[in-house]
Design a protein around this nucleic acid. Sequence first.
DNA 1: TAATATGTCGGAAACGGTTCCAATGGAGAT
DNA 2: ATCTCCATTGGAACCGTTTCCGACATATTA
Lengths: 333, 333
Amino acid sequence: MAVTIRDVAKKANVGVGTVSRVLNNSSAVRPETRAKVLEVIEELNFTPNVAARRLSMGVTKSIAVVLPSLIYESTFERIKGIQIAADQTDYDLVLYTPNTIEKREKILEQIVNGGLSDGVILVSFVPTDEELAFIENSATPIIFVEAAIPDYACVHVDNQKGGYMAAQHLIELGHQNIGIMTYLLGEEDGFSPMRARYDGFKAALRDAGLAFDDSKHRVSPHMLHDAERVAKEWLSSHSRPSAIFASSDIQAIGVIKAAKNMGIRVPEDLSVIGFDDIESAHLMDLTTIKQPLYESGVQAFEMLMTMIQDPSLTPVFSELPLSLFIRNTTKHI
Amino acid sequence: MAVTIRDVAKKANVGVGTVSRVLNNSSAVRPETRAKVLEVIEELNFTPNVAARRLSMGVTKSIAVVLPSLIYESTFERIKGIQIAADQTDYDLVLYTPNTIEKREKILEQIVNGGLSDGVILVSFVPTDEELAFIENSATPIIFVEAAIPDYACVHVDNQKGGYMAAQHLIELGHQNIGIMTYLLGEEDGFSPMRARYDGFKAALRDAGLAFDDSKHRVSPHMLHDAERVAKEWLSSHSRPSAIFASSDIQAIGVIKAAKNMGIRVPEDLSVIGFDDIESAHLMDLTTIKQPLYESGVQAFEMLMTMIQDPSLTPVFSELPLSLFIRNTTKHI
DNA sequence: TAATATGTCGGAAACGGTTCCAATGGAGAT
DNA sequence: ATCTCCATTGGAACCGTTTCCGACATATTA
């Protein structure tokens, strides 16, 4: 039904090989022949079939981007970076958000054995031991973003240090009663950024000789409304902290919203520091630990390209810098 | 090199047809045969090749999403909707941001003739006449989001009405000196949302008997810094407006930032209304005209699915509702 | 003039699936 | 015992490219 390379060949009185050669403007084709073929292609409105080309070449010219979900602004900023970097190349981006065990398994299979894409960027994807074993001898290059997996290419950040920096900033401002809000902490997984930030935070308090116990820790999803709700309850307690480190900017903004609604002034009555430096942090004048989200996407994509070009390279472990951005939500006590 | 269906067939002592049947758990295969094949598949770690399957089935199970760029938060909210809807299906999402004429042409060709995907969502894509003619007899279903293209399936919004609503709100608050900030207006293109909003805005002023001239119109990209810069210059003029309609929330936020920096209070000294209702609008307490961005994505995807299932359907023209969200950046004069 | 090199080109084979058609064997009917 | 029928299966053909190999014509060299 669709017009194929054979139709073109027939009409142009050449062989299919020749058509293919002008298509890939490779090899030597006589200028007149090329012109004639091009003419027929134009006339027949021929476009090479993508799937056939991929099968025959064993290359997809596409990169799979596996994400936890699209609902987080931070994830989005990473994608932006990935997209911008991809734009410089002829690779397509295919998005996956495997939100069930089955989908995780399926996508991993297709990546490793199914020739789904020429490379994979796993964002905030913490593999189980089983998954890790499965991935182990994948023929297609894989890179982790926001995860530090030994022996794999990773673009990440020292989250523990980030937690430490955040706490340190609050301590330097004279705060003694400091709280922390995180998402659920995986008990024993060493890869989770949340846990690392939490650990760093605690270490800073310890180093400063400040007391800390679970009463100063609250858990909330990285969603505005949840954080706001949790903060509302928290801030109404008598022993409420004078400063809060939220493990993501969205949580921090939720805390600020709750505070404002309760007549608690930020930063006069309550200091709040976030983590990530998403664009909203900028809009809201939020003090935060900036991690280079956008750059992480760019770098991951570029590293992946070099891995595709030379699969024999040993995987690079890239640590991006964190920095404290003091804006308008933290203040000396 | 990779293990194929033939390897499996040989090892399981069956024909390739049988393996394929097991894979697609179709037709009747004797339970014992199925078990044996499944066992060998497991043993050999076989995963069907994606490209081969696509070629032979003539179906890609993927949807192309064509976007102007990823830098706009509003676009992102649409993608979120698309992604969530896609999650309910077994279709993959492939992202394209053709930022040059050549890339536009190439992607359109691959869509129409190349079997790139089973369906296409064109977001904020205003086709030229030439492109329209090319698309005309595309075999693969196409849907436009944020564009009203006659005879095509579209998910859109009455931007003119939106502009009217915004102006009307400001007029009702007693403002007489009302300014507007838009992005570049295409002179004669009837599809551009920007122009429609501008036209609606002017119509409302006219209907209210209010004067308007180009001195009350400023142009800026939909970027925070640009809008802020333009607003700074604008607001320092003596005849500065008492209210501003910005054609996107990001522009509105830029205006607010500039005002705050200049000591102009919002909304006391200056009312600002935006358009879109992106999440930042919520965070910033911005009065705005909400368009259902997320829903537009969901709806577009779902409409596309029905088009794929039955290509004979006449294209649906879906107009989503606009609504005024009064928050904290507009005030009676 | 004969032998060899070079530039083009045609077309078969391969990529790895799916699908259709013919073949086989056993159950049931007569 | 013979004939149908049906469930199950094997395998060839096909999807639309690319690529490799051999063929041919012409140019070059001895």
